[in-house]
Nucleic acid binder design. Structure first.
Length: 195
DNA sequence: GGCCCGATTTGCT
DNA sequence: GCAAATCGGGCCA
């Protein structure tokens, strides 16, 4: 069953943990790629010095973060990769959850076409925020996609038991006291968690 | 208009 | 382990 609006209407730290183990679905021309979310990071809006929306910075890029929860905040990083985030909290509060790692469940053939790599390790297909966007053919055209009511990208509920690990977020050394917050969460021992 | 830098990945040493 | 790749966003002039 698809997650409804109320699922997303919570703070990003809680949403991040709740998203672990859920199934991310990408539909392209009627074809489905289904994957399990195994690694996430929370970005806590105006007060979080590690977030794009620190101090309520509202620009063309960050605009979607201020929208109603359940939209896709997508941005370009290093001029060549995309990152996917799920907007959290209430409208006007720019919090979101970065998806950093997913485990392919269905549509692995499509993933391999979207992301040709030399490595024969299957986890190298989707164990990173830029990698998984390439694998799912997610780019700037999907910015602002509605995960609650749209068809291109959405998330299904899924029950499963696992152990969650909390750690520091990756590559935000500039975030001062927010650098050491344990706002990265991942499923213990899952090989699709980034390194 | 110009400059600096990044919520990353890859390939080479 | 480390630096290159590569370019739009943000900010200041």
């Amino acid at each position: 069953m698809r997650l409804d609006l109320s699922f997303y209407q919570k703070d990003a730290i809680t949403l991040a943990q709740d998203l672990l183990g859920k199934l991310l679905v990408r539909e392209i021309n009627g074809q489905k790629i289904i994957s399990k979310i195994v690694e996430v990071e929370a970005y806590m809006g105006p007060e979080d010095k590690g977030a794009h929306t620190y101090n309520n910075r509202r620009t063309e890029r960050t605009e979607v973060m201020f929208w109603r929860a359940g939209h896709a905040y997508i941005y370009i990083i290093y001029g060549m990769y995309y990152c996917l985030n799920v907007v959290a909290a209430e409208e006007g509060i720019p919090q979101g959850v970065l998806i950093r790692g997913i485990e392919p469940i269905e549509g692995l053939d499509i993933i391999k076409i979207n992301r040709p790599i030399k490595s024969r390790k299957i986890q190298d297909l989707t164990n990173g925020p830029g990698k998984l966007c390439q694998a799912l053919d997610i780019d700037i055209n999907l910015r602002g996609t509605d995960l609650v009511y749209g068809q291109d990208l959405y998330i299904l509920d899924h029950q499963e038991t696992f152990e969650t690990i909390a750690s520091k977020r990756i590559n935000i050394d500039y975030a001062e006291e927010y650098r050491d917050k344990l706002w990265r969460f991942y499923i213990k021992n899952n090989i699709f968690v980034s390194k």
